[in-house]
Design a binder for these strands. Structure first.
Lengths: 153, 153
DNA sequence: TTGATATCATTTGCATACGAATGAATTTGG
DNA sequence: CCAAATTCATTCGTATGCAAATGATATCAA
């Protein structure tokens, strides 16, 4: 190796490979923090609904009546999680549940008028939440970020 | 449900603003899904430890003895959450807890030999998890993504 | 010094999140 | 047609995650 002794020593000193694991630079750790920050921004703008609850209402507003299970698929929640979310929305009168006439396994979920009013009122706030979440990025960076994030999700 | 047919809810719906809201394109929704995917990859590689538990061990390995509260700050967990994580690690013999000699409020957390063995064994797997999480991106895209994600977190 | 503040840890309550097991209803394959 | 497989929903157990309240200790300021 030509003239590399000093450089080699330096590199070895800085990169012992196993001792050098940096938690703060791992994608999972930063993803978790970014998600936490978003939830916090959401809560500051929409205090009385959680992001999953909002997602359920927004999707129902979008697609209309669906089964609980199907709704879960649309908003990326497993059956156990979606049940809890829908139960709480029902308790607040934002959705109602009816049995499917033909397929008796299914539970159909609908927005109530109150639920419809709520989601339509909240959607502008949700736009502001998206903007605030992306505020640390320029418009171009945000576009790039969204494109790459979508690939990961 | 009583009454009858579906009333067609033709809410004469041409408010472009409201109809345009696409949940699937909001940063918070995709962030949540990307995080879910990462947790799932983590679980497939490291079945007997959760990402927060791993983070606690990795950080302890990095900085040595710290108070429970300080550890929480380092790995972005509030006091209530970190307590649960540390309790479970203690129950498994991966950390031990001692009272601070001078400041009696503080609870000092240390890796046990088993905890040290575990984290050193798992770090290579964690590197693989990071790689697999970023696998949908090219190397250049991954670098860009990490830079932008860090700005958001 | 002491009274007000601040910090550390704990506890409680609520809300995701998911694996696994279960029961009911439907669909499929032979 | 029927037995097996699948689907839908529910329940249980475990693990974050955070707000708010509490108790113990430490620090600061008048």
């Amino acid at each position: 190796m030509s003239g590399g002794d000093n450089l080699l020593k330096l590199v070895e000193a800085e990169e012992p490979d196993d001792n050098d694991y940096r938690l703060q630079e791992q994608v999972g750790f930063i993803l978790r923090k970014a998600h936490q920050r978003h939830v916090s921004i959401f809560a500051s703008q929409i205090g009385d609904l959680t992001p999953p609850q909002f997602a359920a209402l927004a999707k129902l507003h979008d697609v209309g009546e669906t089964s609980q299970n199907q709704l879960g698929t649309l908003i990326a929640m497993d059956a156990a999680t979606v049940k809890g979310v829908i139960d709480r929305l029902k308790a607040r009168g934002l959705v109602d549940l009816t049995k499917h006439e033909v397929d008796k396994r299914r539970l159909l979920v609908n927005l109530t008028p109150e639920g419809r009013e709520a989601i339509e009122r909240l959607i502008p706030l949700a736009r502001a939440i998206t903007q605030e979440t992306l505020a640390p990025l320029t418009a171009k960076e945000a576009a790039t970020f969204m494109r790459l994030l979508a690939k990961l999700a």
